[in-house]
């Protein structure tokens, strides 16, 4: 049975930006992306794309990537396509600039209904910018679907999904009917690298772009319920004492003596 999957993906500030290059505009309450560091597709969303592609390759069907934002970098956002997704739908509207998780879920749910004919909605377990892990569960609520979080594998058996949920010390196996919302964790394994052919194909595809009105929504439907009072970089007053020696081994020995002196060992 072919399975149609919609994968929600988000463009985020590169989370591997070194802490020293991480800047905040406290006045505007915004993160200032480090210069020369392009945004990326949220890592867990790539894990979700990977699982979607594995399911499609095994069962047939279609994978549609869906994203909401204001300032998409097209080379970045086409990554799911170059990995092998069939379509890309971008929701872009100036009203999305201060959108919260609630509004995001409302807009994405409207888009999912408009795309229609879906069996499975996949999302990354959380976005690496706000680490909220809310939108997928909001989609499940708004679309009236069952939800399973932090999956490491998904299989289709008859009319049900079998999902392994990654846990700190092991995993649970769940069964749920479709359609369903499942969030994917990095335990699912490395996302595939786009092939040259994939990149070529992606470059020829034009994403479908919808604004708020295309979704049949007005600004009040996505109005923020949360507001940001402050955004700042915490200061640490920690002072590191560097232990030096004649060579690395000597420094290692001296470190042990130091910890002994401090009664830590």
């Amino acid at each position: 049975m072919p399975i149609n999957i919609i994968v929600c993906v988000k463009q985020v500030v590169d989370p591997e930006t070194p802490a020293s290059a991480f800047k905040v505009d406290r006045e505007a309450k915004r993160v200032v992306p480090a210069s020369g560091v392009p945004p990326v597709v949220n890592g867990f969303d790539e894990n979700a794309v990977e699982l979607a592609l594995r399911l499609r390759d095994a069962h047939g069907g279609k994978v549609t990537a869906l994203s909401l934002g204001t300032d998409f970098v097209m080379d970045v956002m086409k990554k799911p396509l170059s990995m092998g997704a069939d379509d890309l739908v971008l929701l872009r509207d100036s009203s999305f600039s201060n959108i919260d998780s609630f509004g995001t879920a409302v807009a994405l749910a409207a888009a999912i209904r408009k795309i229609g004919n879906y069996d499975l909605i996949l999302c990354g377990r959380q976005a690496s910018d706000w680490d909220n892990a809310q939108v997928p569960l909001g989609l499940a609520e708004l679309l009236g679907l069952p939800s399973i979080t932090t999956a490491k594998s998904i299989q289709v058996r008859d009319k049900t999904l079998i999902v392994e949920r990654a846990l700190p010390d092991g995993y649970d196996v769940f069964e749920t009917p479709f359609p369903a919302v499942v969030t994917v964790s990095n335990e699912a394994g490395q996302p595939r690298y786009p092939t040259l052919r994939g990149i070529m194909m992606a470059s020829r595809k034009t994403p479908i772009t919808w604004g708020l009105s295309d979704l049949g929504l007005d600004a009040s439907a996505i109005a923020s319920k949360l507001s940001l009072l402050d955004l700042f970089i915490p200061v640490t007053q920690k002072q590191c004492e560097f232990i030096e020696g004649e060579n690395d081994a000597d420094a290692g020995r001296k470190l042990a003596l130091k910890l002994r002196e401090a009664k830590l060992i």
Binding site: F22, K225, L226, D230, L231
Partner: peptide, 17 residues
């Protein structure tokens, strides 16, 4: 709350709802 993986801290509040 910490955001951006702990690189920043945010203070958030709610509307009347």
């Amino acid at each position: 709350r910490p955001v951006y993986g702990g690189n920043a801290m945010a203070a958030v509040t709610f509307t009347q709802l």
